[in-house]
């Protein structure tokens, strides 16, 4: 009984994770500039991978594998924001953003940094 419920829940998690990944890919393809694409690539994708790992854990149901799954989840949570921040900073510094799509830019107002790089 419990096994069946866990199986179905795991299957639902797998499908939900895959669908979030798909939405993230659509966002990466459709969003107009690099920074918006970063948003799609970090958030729905991280949650998608986490849901998928939850699905795996629910279907495997063994302690030894659970440790490794938790490890992958922790790596994802710890590394995805760092990578996103580095790519975002690189995108901003090389001026690769659409200023028409920005409502405010307090980083450029600060004075230093690549404020003038965006006009080229």
């Amino acid at each position: 009984m419990i096994a069946t419920v866990a199986d179905w829940l795991g299957a639902a998690c797998l499908v939900a994770g895959a669908m979030l990944g798909l939405a993230a890919a659509i966002g990466v393809l459709r969003f107009p500039d690099s920074l918006s694409r970063m948003h799609a690539a970090t958030k729905p994708q991280v949650l998608g991978v986490l849901l998928l790992l939850l699905g795996i854990a629910l279907r495997l149901r063994s302690m030894a594998d659970l440790g490794m799954i938790v490890l992958v989840a922790v790596f994802q949570l710890a590394t995805a924001p760092v990578a996103a921040q580095m790519i975002g900073r690189a995108a901003y510094r090389s001026g690769r953003l659409d200023r028409d799509l920005l409502d405010a830019d307090e980083l450029a107002d600060r004075g230093s940094g690549g404020g003038s790089a965006g006009s080229g």
């Binding site: 895959a18 993230a24 990466v28 690099s34 694409r37 998608g48 991978v49 992958v72």
Partner: peptide
């Protein structure tokens, strides 16, 4: 730009993780 390709490659790698994991599940 190169950064867009990095983002896309990251995405592709995450899809690979998903694929391998889904097969295991």
């Amino acid at each position: 730009s190169l950064l867009d390709r990095v983002i896309a490659a990251d995405m592709l790698l995450a899809t690979m993780i998903a694929g391998v994991g889904a097969e295991a599940a």
